[in-house]
Amino acid sequence: MVEKQLTRERTSSWSWILQAFTGALLLVLLGLHMVVQHFVVEGGLRDYQQVVEYLSNPFVFLLEVMFLIIVTWHALLGVRAILFDLGLQPATERKVTAILSIVGVITIAYGIWLSATIVAQGA
């Protein structure tokens, strides 16, 4: 039994490297996000008007979308790593990867839609 599990087909993996890479980007992006959204704001949270004005700045919009993509990617890679620790069958692993990819795309699409909606409301 042990032997069959061990002699599974081995395939090249980028997940750890990507996790480290997105993690390193998050140090910068999450840092900027925290500073601009919470630390420099009176009271720690922007009111509606402030959010709209702020997000209408194209550079900030881009920064927040980048943050959204990287943080989602990092989070779902982490969930995937925790699930892969369970020693799943290769077919189940492929399903996990596919489902998490879909969740990631939906999450990022929702985030971009939300940001765009807020900017549009302000215009």
Partner: peptide, 9 residues
């Protein structure tokens, strides 16, 4: 070793 259940695990 370059596998999900190799060095990266």
């Amino acid at each position: 070793v370059d596998d999900e259940h190799g060095v990266w695990r």
